[in-house]
Amino acid sequence: MKEIEPFEQSLKRYRGLLFTVCQRYSRRGADIDDLLQEVTIALWKKHAEMESIAPLPRQAAWVWRLAKNASIDYLRRLRPTEALPEGLEEDLRDDDTGHHDNLQECIKLLDEPDKSIVSYHLDGYRYEEIAAKTGLTVSNISVRLVRIREKLKKIYNNGI
C-alpha cells in the first residue's frame, strides 16, 4: 500500500506529459478517456522500474516512451466489440460464491454517506469536490475514507 502514494505523486508530476501523448493518439480514433486509463495502468505496472530511473529528465523520457507504446498497443487492440457467446451471460450472473470478490458489491453494503463518499472517491473526484457534494469538510472526507477502507476490508474478508 505504501507504493500508492509515490505512484500518485509520479502521476501528478507527469500528468501534462501523459495528456500530451494521449491527446496525440486520441486523434487516431481512440477515445482519450480509454487511453488515459490504459496509460495509467501501464505506468502502474512498471512503477518500480520508473522509480529507479534518475535523473528526472531521463525518467520523463522513459514515461513518454511508455505512454507512447501503451497508446500504440491500445490502438492496435481496438476491435469491434463482440457479443458474448449465448448463455454465458446468464452463467456469469448466477455465479455466486457467497464471498464478496467484487469491491463494488462491498461498497453497496455501506451506509450513507460512506457509500457516496467512497464511490465519488473511486470515480476520481477530488476531496474538495466530494466535500461540496456531500456537505462535509475536506478533512472529514479524508478521515472517513480511512475508516471506510477498514469497513470494506471487514466486509470483504468476512463476507458480511
Partner: peptide
C-alpha cells in the same frame, strides 16, 4: 484474504487515479 483486499483496493486506487486524470484533462 487481507492481502487480496489490499490488492483489490490498490487496483481500485489506480483506476481512481486514471479517472481523476480523465476528469482533469
Amino acid at each position: 484474504e487481507s492481502k487480496n483486499f489490499d490488492s483489490l483496493w490498490q487496483e481500485a486506487e489506480v483506476n481512481r487515479m486514471a479517472k481523476e486524470l480523465v476528469r482533469e484533462y
